[in-house]
């Protein structure tokens, strides 16, 4: 980026709004910290929680470092199996975000394609896609995700469940959330289809596929960014819920939701730190993503204000 473009970017409405919104600044700061923590987890963590040889059972159930009986080596304490809670959270965050981003990408890809197709072709195809979307939308997302998950588990042999868990989750959450993209893209595609540049492309002999991908697609992508941001929060939350319910990531490869489930089992022995710290990270992550999404929606869609 050259200097003038850069200064223009800093001078834009979005930058102005960013500087004047403390929620946007705080949530973006939190997100940067969390993303960095997830990205550099192997460097920041004290141990690899997946590697059993690094665990020392004598150190199990230690409270956080500042509490009575805490060990300075384990900042946030350890769980029943002597896993360092702080390291588990870093690795868990990584998995949660990975599933979140991948399922958002899947949902966006499916939703944009179907929306573009329905809006451009119209007629029966459009009707069929939108009826499916209507039915899907009338059920709570978590129920649909559970069903896809259950079907996938039924198809796969039980011994493959653990290794396939992450793919099953991405599929279940992605296939649940495409409707919003499809509806939005379909709406704007129907508007764009009427415009002169599309007619010009038709006269030039561009195929329907070419018009959809090269001409209409770039013009309908604007709102997708906002939907994707809000969707990311939803996806992370759905993943955590599924893992908490015991049908998500397995205990050998815990995401934040799995950590909360494991911690929940020991709640009555008074070991609160195993459940509370992953919960706090999850809540902060979801809250920051949602605030960021709200802010983006307000800035990019002045009509909604």
């Amino acid at each position: 980026m050259t200097a003038p473009t850069l200064s223009r970017a800093f001078d834009s409405d979005i930058a102005w709004s960013f500087r004047h919104s403390w929620t946007a600044r705080i949530s973006s700061l939190l997100l940067i910290i969390l993303f960095a923590a997830a990205l550099f987890a192997p460097m920041l963590a004290n141990q690899n929680p997946y590697d059993i040889s690094q665990l020392n059972l004598l150190d199990s159930e230690l409270p956080p470092a500042w509490a009575e009986g805490g060990d300075p080596r384990y900042l946030l304490g350890t769980d029943q199996q002597a896993r360092d809670v702080y390291s588990s959270i870093l690795y868990g965050l990584r998995l949660s975000l990975l599933v979140g981003f991948a399922s958002v990408a899947l949902a966006a890809a499916v939703g944009i394609s179907l929306g573009l197709l329905g809006g451009f072709v119209g007629g029966l195809v459009d009707g069929a896609i939108m009826r499916v979307a209507d039915i899907l939308l009338s059920f709570p997302a978590i129920l649909v995700a559970l069903l896809v998950n259950g079907i996938a588990r039924g198809i796969l042999p039980p011994d493959r469940h653990a290794e396939a868990a992450i793919w099953v989750l991405i599929l279940a959450i992605g296939l649940t959330n495409w409707v919003q993209y499809a509806r939005t893209v379909r709406g704007s595609t129907m508007v764009e289809r009427q415009k002169e540049y599309v007619q010009a492309a038709r006269i030039n002999g561009v195929s329907g596929m070419g018009i959809m991908i090269n001409h209409i697609l770039p013009n309908v992508l604007g709102p997708v960014l906002v939907i994707a941001t809000i969707n990311l929060g939803m996806a992370v939350l759905t993943e955590a819920t599924l893992s908490f319910l015991g049908v998500g990531m397995p205990a050998t490869q815990p995401s934040l939701g799995t950590l909360i489930r494991i911690g929940n089992e020991y709640l009555f022995s008074g070991i609160w730190w195993v459940v509370i710290f992953p919960s706090v990270v999850l809540v902060v992550l979801v809250l920051a993503v949602n605030l960021m999404g709200d802010w983006l929606r307000d800035v990019l869609n002045p009509k909604l204000r």
């Binding site: 059920f139 978590i142 198809i155």
Partner: peptide, 29 residues
């Protein structure tokens, strides 16, 4: 939505309802 979210509540509180039954069914296929 409440009926669907009851699945989560029933798991947290080991409430012997339909949601808990459904979760068992999902995990066993």
């Amino acid at each position: 939505g409440l009926i669907a979210f009851a699945i989560i509540t029933e798991t947290v509180f080991q409430w012997p309802g339909m949601g808990a039954l459904f979760i068992q069914a999902v995990s066993f296929g």
